[in-house]
């Protein structure tokens, strides 16, 4: 049996002395899309930071492809095929689009491959090669960030709040690309607030609350509970 592509076992982690994650258990099977949902401050982004090596867990285990990789540096994981598109535009604003694309070659893909693929997927970026990335529109910036995920053939893709601050139509376009990647068999972990959109592409979903994964299940079931979690309906007042 193939081991899960990504597994977190009782992971505790945080910033300084304060723990944000109090024992997170999470499994991403190869070739599937998992949506990680939950309100702000629940620890979703911290979970991704642990999985990408940016934060070392203070307890528990991080396994990738069945191998424990606690303590691995983010650049080492990146070269091993773990690709995180962080929240809020994963781009270098003071580099040009072309230079941003060039930065994608550090995980092992050749420059010509990366640029061909990136400009083919997002022709709008091709037109703006010489432009500073910081001067692109929000949607174009997110496309540039996504281009790294799509052009470098990662083994594991993690997307943090892809839709934040973007117009619905652009969000749909981006999720169209995610769906294509998923159809191609890529394993994807998505953290999102726009639950409805994600649940459309996800194979399974997990809800995170107060630093723990409280519920895992098929998207349809999770969707029911989400409204309550977000808008505070039926969840009762403070006791």
């Amino acid at each position: 049996m193939t081991p899960p592509l990504l597994e977190l076992r009782g992971v505790r982690a945080g910033y300084g002395i304060i723990d944000v994650l109090h024992g997170v258990d999470l499994i991403l099977e190869p070739g599937t899309v998992l949506a990680l949902l939950g309100p702000n401050g629940a620890g979703k982004s911290t979970t991704l930071a642990v999985a990408s090596g940016q934060i070392q867990p203070s307890g528990g285990q991080l396994l990738i492809g069945g191998r424990e990789v606690n303590g691995a540096k983010p650049d080492a994981l990146a070269r091993a095929g773990v690709c995180l598109v962080p929240e809020g535009r994963g781009i270098f604003p003071n580099l040009t689009v072309a230079e941003n694309v060039r930065m994608m070659t550090f995980s092992g893909t050749s420059y010509s491959d990366v640029s061909d693929r990136a400009y083919e997927l997002f022709p709008r970026l091709g037109e703006r090669r010489k432009q500073l990335a910081g001067t692109l529109s929000g949607g174009e910036q997110q496309m540039l960030a996504m281009a790294r995920a799509m052009a470098t053939n990662p083994a594991l893709l993690m997307l943090d709040e892809l839709s934040m601050g973007l117009a619905p139509i652009i969000v749909e376009e981006l999720y169209g690309q995610v769906a294509q990647l998923a159809a191609g068999g890529l394993s994807i972990l998505i953290v999102e607030q726009f639950a409805q959109t994600v649940l459309g592409v996800a194979d399974s979903a997990a809800i995170m609350l107060h630093g723990r994964v409280t519920r895992t299940g098929p998207p349809a079931e999770i969707a029911e509970e989400l409204t309550a979690a977000y808008l505070g309906i039926e969840s009762g007042g403070p006791s």
Partner: peptide, 16 residues
Amino acid sequence: RAVVDNRELTSLTGAR
């Protein structure tokens, strides 16, 4: 130059 812009992101791309 990328390191200046965003050190975390630089390491996420695999550069050291």
